[in-house]
Structure formats: structure tokens, C-alpha cells
């Protein structure tokens, strides 16, 4: 992770435009891509070996348990020979047991060795899988950097050539402000309208309640004029 970020960092400081170049070897192949391919191949091989080793281990373990049984039954035979006071036969059986125990020790050693190999292979697979995951993430950092650069270049080119929009900050700001003003105006207009509507509504209520009305009657006017004359 840090290695690839470092490379990109250095490339940026150095003004490199094509980010991919920062991690590509002389053959033009991404180092990470090649390592991922290699790691995947090595996992395949290791898995194949693992099944083989595990099969051999199971075989050896089976042999061990057979030998254990044989030893046990020969011990019974020896014991029976002793019961019959046949020392010679008992000794012969004991000799057989010794051979069997040697065989068992041999097979135990094989099982132990194969167990070690299984552990090793599993560790190797785990390590390769981690390497792949790391490299794939690193590769994605590089690819993303490249994609973003390319996308930006295309956007800029496209803006120059046709209708696509990439305004200056000032132009965008004006647009934002115009939209905000428009919204504000709309809101105010809405409020005004509402006020008028509700105002009219109130007037009509007052009128119908006889509290407020413009309709002065002829009698009222005459009374006012008469009052003024006096």
C-alpha cells in the first residue's frame, strides 16, 4: 500500500502525467499484474501439492493405526504364550513386536514430516492470497488514478469541442446565485399571494359579519350632510 502510494506521490512531485508509467516495468507490463499472475499460479501449484501431501499423510496414519492394532494383538499372543509357559514362543512374538514397533516409529516420523509439510503449504497459500489481495488493491489505486486523469482530460476536451459544461467558478457561482434568487423570489411571491388571499378572506368575513363594510347607505350620507349644516 505505502509503496504504491509513495510511487504515485513521487510521480506527482516529479510532474509525471501518466500515472500508470510509475509502476510499469521496462516490458510495459505492470509489475503488480505480473506478480498477481505469478501468485495465482503458485497458489494453484500449492493446492495441488497440498492434496497430494494430505493423501500421503492419511495413508501413513492408516498404517500407524494398523500397526498399533497388530502390536496390541501380538502383546496378547505373547501374554498367552507366557501363560502356557512357552518362553521360546513368547520371545519370538516379542521379536515380532519389536519389528512392528520399529515400523510404527518409522510411520510416526512420516506422519510428523507430512503434517509439517501441510502446515507449510497452507501458510504459503495464505501468504500468496494476501499478496494477491494487496496487489489487487494497489493496482486499483493506480488504475483509479489513471481513470480519473483520463476522465478529466476527456471532460476538458469535450468542453472545448461541444456542449458539455465545465464553467469557471465565477460562472457557476452566478448560476447558483441566480437560482437561489429565483427560489427566494418564488417564495416571496408565494407568501405575498398567500397574504393577499388570506387578507381577502378576512375582509369578506368581516363584511359578512357586518363589522366592516364600504356600502354606506344614502340615509347615512344625508344624516352626515345634515349634521354638517347645523
Amino acid at each position: 500500500m505505502s509503496s504504491v502510494l509513495n510511487k504515485i506521490w513521487t510521480a506527482l512531485r516529479g510532474g509525471v502525467r501518466e500515472m500508470g508509467d510509475a509502476i510499469v516495468d521496462s516490458n510495459g507490463v505492470s509489475i503488480f499484474e505480473q506478480e498477481i499472475v505469478d501468485a495465482k499460479a503458485s497458489i494453484g501449484q500449492a493446492k495441488h501439492n497440498l492434496t497430494e501431501v494430505m493423501a500421503r499423510k492419511m495413508q501413513a496414519e492408516r498404517k500407524v493405526s494398523t500397526l498399533v492394532e497388530e502390536i496390541r494383538s501380538h502383546e496378547t499372543y505373547a501374554s498367552k504364550a507366557l501363560d502356557q509357559s512357552d518362553e521360546t514362543l513368547a520371545l519370538e512374538v516379542a521379536g515380532k513386536i519389536a519389528t512392528l514397533e520399529n515400523d510404527k516409529a518409522e510411520q510416526d516420523a512420516i506422519v510428523a514430516r507430512l503434517t509439517g509439510q501441510v502446515e507449510q503449504l497452507k501458510a504459503h497459500i495464505k501468504k500468496a492470497e494476501k499478496l494477491i489481495a494487496d496487489h489487487e488493491r494497489e493496482l486499483s489505486i493506480v488504475r483509479t488514478t489513471e481513470s480519473v486523469q483520463k476522465a478529466t482530460e476527456q471532460v476538458v476536451e469535450n468542453v472545448a469541442s461541444n456542449s458539455s459544461t465545465l464553467n469557471s467558478a465565477r460562472e457557476s457561482l452566478e448560476r447558483i446565485k441566480a437560482r437561489q434568487e429565483m427560489k427566494q423570489d418564488q417564495m416571496e411571491a408565494g407568501e405575498l399571494l398567500e397574504k393577499e388571499m388570506s387578507g381577502n378572506d378576512l375582509d369578506s368575513k368581516l363584511e359578512s359579519a357586518g363589522i366592516k363594510g364600504e356600502s354606506a347607505s344614502a340615509a347615512d350620507i344625508l344624516a352626515r350632510i345634515k349634521a354638517a349644516k347645523q
Binding site: T144, S147, V148, T152, L166, R175, I176
Partner: peptide
């Protein structure tokens, strides 16, 4: 509409800029 967004899709991400 003052700020158009440019969307790019890579292997792992949808980038909106």
C-alpha cells in the same frame, strides 16, 4: 444544474466528480 457531475466506473469504484 450549476455543478455537473462526471461519473466514471472503475474495477472497484463508482467515482462521481
Amino acid at each position: 444544474d450549476a455543478m455537473p457531475i462526471f461519473v466514471t466506473i472503475t474495477d472497484t469504484q463508482i467515482l462521481c466528480i
